[in-house]
Amino acid sequence: MLRPDDEAAASFAPLRPRLTRIAYRMLGSVAEAEDVVQDAFIRWHQTDRAAVLNPEAWLARTVGRLCLDVLKSARMKRETYIGPWLPDPVVETPEETDGDDITLTLMLALERLSPLERAAFLLHDVFGLGFEEVAQTIDRDAAACRQLASRARTHVREARPRYPVPEDRGRHIADAFFTASRNGDMAALQALLAADVVAYTDGGGKTSSALNPIYGQDKVARFFAGLARHAGRQLPPVLRPSTINGLPGFVTVEIDNVLQTMALAIDDGRISAIYVTRNPDKLRHIERM
């Protein structure tokens, strides 16, 4: 017979990956998500588990409430963040993908929602909690939760690509962009980029990066061509092509020895957004190869 400590850990362990996904989708931070899930485990250990009819729903509600508390302070941090803020990149293999269709682009759309809208949408639409359970989590009635989720759904729908490309086509476009950006090939870069493309570089004030988003095909192409000219032939090869938050991308170590991820949003065969993360605090969970 398991001791109470062992029983709590054994019942919690199978649920930890899903709870971590909930927390990460809510917060956009791997470290904060792990802290929230560990706090939820402590509460699970301390509660009367025999009285909990549905442990998974109980823990999902607990994680949701803890995330809402974290989001209150996170908004203030984002207001003083240096340069564009991007969610922590999560590098996935095909076997590791969440299957919830929430890409990095959609996570940024969630950032524009209120914490309650985000919680209602994620808990109900993505993680399958009923509105009564969502209501218990965010301390609103079920009807209000339906309205919150509906508003969030509209924002998310607007952020989805209008003309998504198949995965293999997206990988081909990403590979072509990587080659063109390393070679500084302006013509090839412009051919791959949408007219209204936006590039975001998140260094958090800790590594060199653009302090503002870069808008437009010509400016984005010139930005990457300029990086290639500055580096000459010193630019290292890609460490590994990857899927990053559901988007095709790359993990590299740049000439300044900074670990970097790049993810590409693709719509109608052209790159519509580029997300570069260089803040070392956001990359600690990604091992160098």
Rank of each mutant, 00 (worst) to 15 (best):
Q136H: 01
V220I: 08
T103M: 03
P115H: 00
N279K: 12
H45I: 00
V198W: 10
A195I: 11
W44D: 00
R160Q: 14
P164L: 05
A152E: 12
I274T: 02
E92Y: 13
D100N: 02
H285A: 11
L235F: 11
V37S: 05
R157P: 04
A144F: 02
F224H: 06
P87C: 14
A199T: 09
V220F: 11
T47R: 03
T154Y: 06
G130T: 07
A23K: 03
W44M: 04
D5N: 07
L86Q: 06
A33R: 03
K282R: 07
L227D: 06
I286P: 08
V156S: 11
G64F: 03
Y163M: 09
R222I: 07
A199W: 10
T80W: 13
K77M: 11
N212M: 13
G205A: 04
R118S: 11
K219L: 15
R78N: 00
F121E: 02
V126I: 14
D218C: 08
S150A: 10
E158D: 11
P115A: 03
I42M: 05
V258W: 03
H172R: 11
P248Q: 10
S181A: 15
R270A: 08
G246K: 00
R146E: 15
G83P: 05
C145H: 02
D101P: 00
E96W: 00
V276S: 09
R182W: 10
L86K: 03
K282P: 08
V90Y: 09
R112G: 15
R182V: 07
L104H: 13
V276N: 12
E95A: 12
R140C: 10
A225C: 09
F127S: 12
D185T: 07
R118G: 14
D256N: 10
L106H: 09
V90C: 13
R240G: 10
G269H: 00
A51H: 09
A135L: 08
G28A: 02
D100C: 00
D88S: 13
S209A: 15
T207P: 06
F223E: 05
D202I: 08
R140S: 12
A10C: 05
T154N: 03
R162E: 02
T97Q: 08
E96N: 00
A176R: 14
N245V: 04
A23E: 00
R49D: 09
D35G: 07
D100Y: 04
V30D: 03
A210K: 07
A144E: 12
T105W: 02
A265C: 00
N279A: 15
R118F: 10
F131C: 06
T207C: 08
V258G: 05
T261K: 07
V90I: 13
M107F: 02
E117Y: 14
T137P: 02
A194K: 01
F223L: 14
